[in-house]
Amino acid sequence: MLLNQFLLLSAVLFSIGVYGVLARRNGVLVLMSIELILNAVNINLVAFGAFRATVGGEVFALFIIAVAAAEVGVGLAMVLLMYRNRRSIDLTAIDQLRG
């Protein structure tokens, strides 16, 4: 197996994740897309770990899984807060940053 096939798969998933983050209006869907990005990174880590024949890559993939769990927890809490305050989780409706 070529290393590059995994890395390119990861790149594709990463880019799709980026698209999702940028294009979706629903807050929950944006979070899902972030999960996609994190998973793409995980594939990278494990592939490089296998390539270099160390377990370091796997260990960091595990850490990222833990970090992702934390991220989803906080992210969904924020989405819920937003829903409670504005009855909507439409990200396009949030434009208080307008200059």
Partner: peptide
């Protein structure tokens, strides 16, 4: 682009 929409900013960032 300078709309105050977070996703536009994120796009520029990416």
């Amino acid at each position: 682009i300078n709309s105050g929409k977070v996703q536009s900013y994120a796009a520029i960032l990416f």
